[in-house]
Design a protein around this nucleic acid. Structure first.
Lengths: 144, 144
DNA sequence: AGCTGCATGAGAATCATTATCATTATGTGG
DNA sequence: CCACATAATGATAATGATTCTCATGCAGCT
């Protein structure tokens, strides 16, 4: 089909996001924005279906992938390598995650940023980035 | 020899390693001790076979699993979730890894440890641990 | 040397994630 | 408001890493 590419190829902004707003992506985004916990793609899929949404698993993966690339969500790996996602504020930050209930808090780490740069420089490394995640028991879970 | 433990009395709740010294595990250990880079289980398997060792992939996985549990190796996840292993000094530490050549350096992070504890306490978390990994370009790779 | 049971190896089985591809529907221009 | 180009969706197959199965082998101990 669509044989000849229409010469109507005007000077349209090529850098257009080319990303469409579907209710599926909105659903994933909404769900994440209402949770302070990291969830796996499959958990998100299940939750959405419980909510009555008829959405495909592959779509959830694609939405999450897009959102993470856009910096809208944070991705963390569980000990066994599963990816978990959480809505996040824009900008650089880290997390303090409860390993019991999954509750998490975003934390700024100004001191760490500086320390990281120093260490990197001291070792001759350049273009350095870092990952810092903390795991423990939140106040609630600590009581039990 | 006999630690005076009754031969027949298998009641000893001993936390004996019950781990046998096979040449396969030694091979994996040797290979890791001679590399300052993180490698995936399959890479290790390939390298061993190149060296003429006739070892099974499952065995490599088991050896790495045992070694990581014993704290003899560090485990890191690549961006796409693959586990990579590297020989490490005992004790708590972190890494500065070159994302180009894979070269890595162990780094102590006393300042970070303290900071981590403070943040954890400030948020009511207990039993806190943390992960800190830094990625960048080593001096060599920076030149290019 | 003889035993016992953990370790090994080859391949099947899992499981999360990605790719395929026909179909649907979004954003746009007419 | 309608038509169109095409990104997005969804059901499913495919991929790939890691784990499990189980018959056989070897390490450690007597």
């Amino acid at each position: 089909m669509g044989t000849g590419t229409p010469a109507t190829e005007t000077t349209m902004t090529s850098t257009r996001p080319t990303t469409r707003n579907t209710w599926q992506r909105a659903a994933v985004r909404d769900l994440l924005e209402n949770s302070a916990e990291f969830r796996t793609a499959q958990q998100i899929h299940d939750l959405l279906k419980e909510h009555g949404a008829k959405i495909g698993l592959a779509t959830v993966y694609r939405a999450l992938q897009a959102m993470s690339e856009a910096g809208e969500v944070d991705v963390l790996r569980t000990v066994d390598g599963e990816a978990t996602y959480r809505h996040c504020s824009s900008g650089h930050h880290h997390h303090l995650v409860c390993r019991s209930c999954g509750y998490s808090v975003e934390i700024a780490a100004r001191p760490v940023e500086e320390w990281a740069n120093e260490v990197a420089a001291a070792n001759g490394f350049t273009d350095v980035g870092h990952e810092v995640e903390m795991f423990g028991l939140c106040a609630e879970c600590s009581k039990r």
